[in-house]
Amino acid sequence: MMGINNNMIMNYYYFYYLIIIIFSNSISVFCQKQEQRIYCELITEPTIFTPEYNRVISHAELPVVKNELSITLKLYLESHGPGRERATRTPALWLRSGDSAPCPRFSITGDFDAGINLNNYGFLLNRWYHIAYTLSNLDKRMNLYIDGKWVGSFSMTNIQGQSFIFNDSPLYIGRNFDWNGFTGQISNFRYYNFRLSHSEVLMDYSGVDPTKHNGNDECLNNSFVYLAMAFFLGIMVMILVGILFIPSIIIRRSYQAIPNSM
Rank of each mutant, 00 (worst) to 15 (best):
N137H: 09
R190H: 08
A132N: 05
N221C: 08
S223Y: 10
W150V: 04
N193M: 05
Y205A: 06
M229R: 15
D204V: 15
G122A: 09
I146V: 14
A101M: 07
D178N: 15
N222G: 08
R127F: 07
D178F: 13
F232M: 10
I131Y: 03
S197F: 01
G174M: 05
L125K: 06
F232N: 09
N158K: 14
G152A: 09
V225W: 15
F112G: 00
N214Y: 13
G110D: 11
S136W: 01
Q162W: 06
N167Y: 06
G215W: 13
M156Q: 04
R141Y: 07
Y172S: 01
S199Q: 14
S206F: 12
E218S: 11
R105Y: 13
M203E: 06
Q160M: 10
S163R: 15
N222D: 14
A101T: 01
D147T: 04
Y145P: 04
S206G: 10
N188E: 11
F112K: 14
D111R: 10
R127M: 13
R127K: 15
F112A: 07
F106I: 04
F231Q: 09
L196D: 00
A101N: 05
N167D: 15
F123K: 06
I173Q: 01
L227M: 14
Y191D: 03
L118N: 07
L135H: 06
N158L: 11
F182H: 05
G122W: 07
L171C: 09
N117G: 10
G152V: 02
F154A: 08
N126S: 12
V201I: 05
D217R: 11
K212N: 12
R190M: 10
Y145I: 01
H213T: 05
N167V: 12
S223H: 05
G181F: 03
I131C: 00
S153Q: 13
F189G: 02
D168C: 12
